[in-house]
Design a protein around this nucleic acid. Structure first.
Lengths: 152, 152
DNA sequence: AACGCCATGAAACAGAGTTTCATATAGGAA
DNA sequence: TTCCTATATGAAACTCTGTTTCATGGCGTT
């Protein structure tokens, strides 16, 4: 369980287990498929813990990212978004995003096709690839249907 | 030539051809392979045209991006970077980046492999892909060599 | 040359995220 | 349990990239 992982790591590093830290992790865990901004996490957390400060939310997110428990993505809208690492360890590597240009929905997917691209790059460009990030922009099923309706 | 394209488009849209606009375009054209931040463009442009204001640089970049003459990329370091559209028209689609984790160098490359991924996504996820963005993080040739030396 | 509208520069502003600093608290030691 | 100290917290000040405002300047048409 992720909560216990977090507690264990905190202990190992001589950091303290605080209610604030656990509540932020819980918020992220309860929104696995959403890609929350810091401000959104703050709003969720305040329901459980109204005294928490925004700075603490930022600090905790930073910590979780450093510990590889949380991943950050940027869609170019000026916000950094966070998602809990569902695909732990090696698998994190192959985790990408579909982003709907209409409604902003973010869909995660996995695909190993890029391994081939990486191999090709390594040879032709003499570049050692460590990680990659793929974003596909387009229209989700729901928005496609809406667009088709309004066109007919 | 890109300068003439820009002038033509400006005229068509009823916008004015100003020295500031031309100088910003020139700066971007003279740094084809670098991926400049707005502030860096400002510094380059000031050499030619010291009176120019930063706001004008931002406004011109915005315009160039809207006109598809310039592309923006974000590497997650808090800056938006810009590069002149070398691969005009349809080809822009297949233009991606290698980013060196050591020295920050950005290398552009082209590859059509992702067409296959897009086709697969369209079927399995019912998602219509319009565009994609791929970033590969790793180590460039020079930094790899340096690392190998320091390890021996 | 003169006019009107668009563009510009300077400075104020906006907003996400970080840092400061005094206070609070986790959690080990006594 | 109580004490102690290093770490964590909240509030507010601050940073920094980028945008907006507004009075002035200048492009381009007549």
């Amino acid at each position: 369980m992720l909560q216990d992982d977090f507690k264990k790591i905190l202990k190992e590093k001589g950091l303290k287990i605080t209610k604030q830290r656990m509540v932020v992790l819980k918020a992220l865990a309860s929104c696995e498929d959403k890609h929350l901004t810091a401000e959104e996490i703050y709003e969720i957390v305040k329901a459980d813990f109204p005294e928490i400060g925004l700075a603490t939310v930022y600090r905790t997110i930073q910590l979780l990212v450093e510990l590889d428990l949380v991943e950050s993505i940027q869609l170019g809208d000026g916000y950094v978004r966070y998602e809990i690492g569902k695909f732990q360890g090696e698998e994190t590597h192959h985790h990408h995003h579909l982003i709907c240009l209409e409604c902003g929905k973010i869909i995660s997917f996995r695909d190993d096709l890029l391994d081939e691209l990486e191999a090709r790059i390594m040879e032709s460009a003499s570049f050692q690839v460590i990680n990659h990030e793929v974003k596909l922009y387009g229209y989700c099923k729901e928005c496609l249907e809406k667009r088709q309706k309004s066109q007919s």
